[in-house]
Design a protein around this nucleic acid. Structure first.
Length: 376
DNA sequence: CAACACCAGCGTCAGTTTTG
DNA sequence: CAAAACTGACGCTGGTGTTG
């Protein structure tokens, strides 16, 4: 993190204002003469005075000074570096090197921008409709196959597969493994409305299997959506919260999925084979009763029945490493997503502040004209 | 059409920060 | 304080546009 000063500087303005690099040359002042360079003080219509630093602004020639204006500094320590000493810089760097995660930053930002979804795993759970939560509790484990498929393991010992190539989910295979799926007296029909006012989507739970009708439903509830389709969800639908919920749920579930799998000691139909994709990692094949096509699944080392303690130990190490890598992979993906969201959020902020600034300057100009006319 | 540049996304590692 | 989560950096890959 500290390794790159340039990347740190990128986060300097992270607090609440602009992402633009503070450039003393770009000083634009409105209403206060003795502010530090690069700082703009803008008095809002409700009387509040906001100090903005480094916002990209249109060239301005009019600097109006008003003695009545008492600027309230909203800028943070990180932004007020005009008069700081070397030690202050040092301290600031230390503070910045311990900057919070994108989740925290985004949550702060989303406080101001309702359009920005909060990244809060607990909240997403809470915000999800009851039906969604119900399914989440049913489908507790998700993991990825070597071919990029996502597999959900339900408490009712059901596994669902989708192929990466499937459009929507008509191609999703549903199969039940294990001795006895949860007996259900008929299908349980659950409904989920992605947004208030939207017509609810339906899906069914029967015999430990979950049947979906719409791709959005998957996103809204839990799983099985190949990552490539997530982009489609974002693009096609306006239900952005759907994929957010899915992602956070995937993140939650993914880590422990493999472990859960073995803890459940499910009887997997198919053969144990050495994985061609991963070399030393044992792989299992799940066979769909319908297609007969083998789906190779990357699993962490399985507790084989005929193994010496040393090889078990080695496999344990390998398994732990695999789990760690898988977790980190997911974390990195999530981190990138958050970063993107964060950057997008900042860009929106800049746009809004630019607009606001423009409007205020025009307002000031108009007031100045009126004032000048009266004075004459 | 090949070669190249550019970009976005990914997986991994290593170091930092947060959490319990 | 250890474990888990997070994130910057690096290298790699595939897609796309441009150029000769």
């Amino acid at each position: 993190m500290d390794a790159s000063a340039s990347s740190d500087s990128m986060t300097d303005g992270e607090d609440n204002h602009s992402e633009a690099s503070p450039s003393p040359a770009a000083t634009t002042q409105v209403s206060v003469a003795d502010e530090s360079p690069g700082v703009t003080v803008v008095q809002l219509s409700d009387g509040e005075t906001v100090q903005v630093q480094g916002v990209i602004q249109a060239p301005q020639t009019s600097v109006i000074q008003s003695p009545q204006v008492q600027p309230v500094q909203i800028a943070t320590v990180a932004e007020l570096e005009g008069d700081e000493s070397a030690t202050d810089t040092q301290k600031r760097r230390e503070i910045l090197s311990r900057r919070p995660s994108y989740r925290k930053i985004l949550n702060e930002l989303s406080f101001d921008s309702p359009a920005v979804p909060k990244i809060d795993e607990e909240k997403t759970e809470e915000e999800a409709p009851a039906s969604s939560t119900a399914v989440s509790s049913v489908l507790s484990s998700v993991y990825q196959t070597s071919s990029g498929q996502y597999i959900a393991i339900a408490q009712g010992k059901a596994i669902q597969l989708t192929s990466p190539g499937v459009e929507a989910l008509q191609g999703a295979q549903t199969l039940t493994v294990g001795s006895s799926p949860t007996p259900q007296a008929g299908a349980t029909i659950l409904q989920y409305a992605t947004q208030p006012g939207n017509s609810p989507q339906q899906f069914y739970i029967q015999g430990g299997q979950v049947l979906f009708q719409e791709p959005w439903v998957l996103g809204a509830t839990v799983l099985i959506l190949p990552l490539k389709l997530l982009g489609e969800v974002d693009r096609i639908s306006s239900q952005k919260d759907v994929s957010t919920v899915l992602r956070s749920h995937l993140q939650r579930c993914f880590a422990a999925a493999v472990l859960d799998y073995w803890k459940q000691e499910m009887a997997v139909t198919g053969d144990e084979t050495e994985s061609a994709a991963t070399g030393d990692i044992p792989a299992y094949q799940l066979r769909s009763p319908n297609s007969g096509l083998a789906q190779s699944v990357v699993m962490a080392a399985s507790p084989g029945p005929m193994q010496s303690p040393s090889s078990q130990h080695a496999e344990e190490i390998t398994r732990k490493r695999e789990v760690r890598l898988m977790k980190n992979r997911e974390a990195a993906r999530e981190c990138r997503r958050k970063k993107k969201e964060y950057v997008k959020c900042l860009e929106n902020r800049v746009a809004v502040l630019e607009n606001q600034n423009k409007t205020l300057i025009e307002e000031l100009k108009a007031l100045k004209d009126i004032y000048c006319h009266k004075a004459e």
